[in-house]
């Protein structure tokens, strides 16, 4: 191997990783900014760094200080939780039907699930708003918490179906045959083999649902009326100046999410490794 080749190999071996790290840095830059400015002892608005008195822990000690911020956070978490539960349940049933059965209308079903994902959020939001305002208001449904939940379930549903479907399709059909061969009737074959094997897909789908719901702004903005979620709170307070407590909460959610995922992976890998 010539030196030239060696250099080329080194570059081709490492350049990808270097670029990847650079991209990750890019992804993290605004998060780091958010973190840094949660310590800013700002005067009017949290835009420029005030060297006087910074860094300060004031905002961290009083995260619920600004009116409504923690209510908005609670709403976001509750909406995310409910939407995730319902969407995961309904989506899993849909995925099973679409992957496992041949029936009339399967193609239409697949399209019905796919189209919401190919529809821009703003169109979803606008259409839901017209429905809620012009259709559902007759039944006494006001824009607010429940309309947000209904809307979030709808747009999370397709993502759940896609995620669970992928997992189901990659499942070896012979495993279920093996179960049947080993005296499992269809009931125990489902609960002892199919379900545990699809479960990681369902958990992924649930996590995805929650992240999408928690971070959604566009649809929420259309259907929320006077109710505020955390992203909406930040957007609305943008003109007045976003309080540093939003940075505190945003960064904490990031840390909590990372911690939970790491914890999940550690537990997962411990369960997978041999007991000994």
């Amino acid at each position: 191997m010539t030196t030239g080749q060696r250099i080329r190999f080194w570059i081709s071996d490492h350049i990808v990783m270097l670029v990847a790290l650079f991209v990750l840095l890019y992804l993290f830059l605004p998060v780091a900014y958010t973190f840094a400015f949660s310590f800013n002892n700002y005067k009017k608005s949290n835009i420029s760094w005030n060297p006087e008195g910074s860094p300060t822990l004031d905002h961290w000690q009083n995260p619920c200080g600004p009116a409504g911020i923690c209510d908005a956070l609670t709403t976001s978490i509750t909406v995310g939780g409910i939407a995730t539960l319902v969407a995961t349940f309904l989506g899993t049933l849909l995925a099973f039907a679409l992957v496992r059965y041949r029936f009339k209308g399967r193609g239409v079903g697949n399209i019905l699930v796919f189209i919401p994902m190919a529809t821009p959020e703003i169109v979803l939001g606008a259409s839901l708003l017209t429905l809620f305002v012009q259709g559902f208001s007759q039944f006494g449904l006001k824009l607010g918490f429940w309309t947000i939940v209904l809307a979030h379930i709808m747009f999370c549903l397709s993502f759940v179906v896609v995620t669970v479907k992928a997992r189901l399709q990659s499942l070896d059909p012979r495993l279920e045959e093996a179960a049947a061969d080993l005296y499992a009737d269809s009931f125990s074959s489902f609960w002892k083999v199919t379900f545990p094997l699809v479960l990681p897909g369902i958990v992924s789908a649930a996590l995805l649902s929650f992240s999408l719901s928690f971070d959604d702004f566009i649809i929420t903005n259309f259907v929320s009326g006077d109710t505020s979620t955390f992203p909406k709170y930040v957007y609305v307070s943008y003109l007045r100046g976003i309080p540093a407590q939003a940075n505190v909460i945003g960064f904490s959610m990031f840390v909590i999410a990372v911690a939970l995922v790491v914890l999940g992976q550690v537990i997962g890998s411990r369960r997978r490794s041999p007991v000994k």
């Binding site: 992804l27 605004p30 400015f37 992240s211 971070d215 930040v234 976003i242 990031f254 995922v261």
Partner: peptide, 23 residues
């Protein structure tokens, strides 16, 4: 790396966009 790609979601899309505005 996977966590690093997904975790920024939780800081909130709006907050990160505002951060970009300042950066």
């Amino acid at each position: 790396m996977m966590i690093c790609v997904i975790a920024p979601f939780f800081t909130s899309f709006i907050l990160r966009t505002v951060a970009w505005r300042q950066i």
